[in-house]
């Protein structure tokens, strides 16, 4: 599936999502891990902040979903983002479809940040961060989604 990733990369460069750019230094040589710089969009709670979003692609990508999380010391303060960078987003797990892409995931995350009305951590942040199965891989967590509008 290297070909698909190659094409996704080309698409991403050609048709960038506003406020998102590939961290070139980290991509060189390794197509299986991408780091994307995310600029907090103007007129949102995150205006002026800069985050790093990491994509790790499994062997069977896109049949298997990518592992996506925020990394570095700035993690967006958001009710669906844990302080260890894990993101609670259904298309990353249950609703993953091979027809989705890096672009579609990025768009979801942008939209998730933009619609946030008040900065906060998930209510179970402390417990989750201490107990999640693998801090470096949110896919090891069994995620449960429930209806709760931000």
């Amino acid at each position: 599936m290297a070909q698909r990733l190659q094409k996704e990369l080309a698409n991403f460069m050609r048709d960038p999502i506003p406020g998102m750019s590939l961290d070139r230094n980290l991509v060189e040589g390794n197509l299986n891990v991408w780091v994307i710089n995310v600029d907090g969009a103007p007129n949102t709670l995150y205006e002026g902040e800069i985050f790093k979003l990491q994509f790790k692609f499994p062997q069977r990508y896109p049949f298997d979903s990518p592992s996506v999380m925020f990394i570095g010391n700035k993690i967006p303060e958001h009710p669906h983002i844990y302080s260890n960078g894990h993101i609670c987003l259904s298309i990353l797990t249950d609703e993953w479809s091979p027809a989705l892409s890096v672009q579609s995931v990025c768009l979801s995350i942008v939209s998730m940040l933009s619609s946030c009305k008040a900065k906060s951590r998930p209510p179970d942040d402390e417990r989750y961060v201490q107990t999640c199965r693998d801090p470096s891989d949110p896919k090891k967590t069994r995620w449960f989604f429930h209806d709760d509008s931000v």
């Binding site: 009710p79 669906h80 609670c88 987003l89 259904s90 298309i91 609703e95 027809a99 989705l100 892409s101 672009q103 579609s104 995931v105 768009l107 979801s108 995350i109 942008v110 939209s111 998730m112 619609s115 998930p122 209510p123 179970d124 417990r127 989750y128 107990t131 999640c132 967590t141 069994r142 995620w143 449960f144 989604f145 429930h146 209806d147 709760d148 509008s149 931000v150």
Partner: peptide, 15 residues
């Protein structure tokens, strides 16, 4: 398809 994906799922999670 990607525009569908942008309708993100505002859901917190429970481990």
């Amino acid at each position: 398809t990607s525009s569908n994906a942008s309708k993100y799922d505002p859901t917190p999670s429970v481990e």
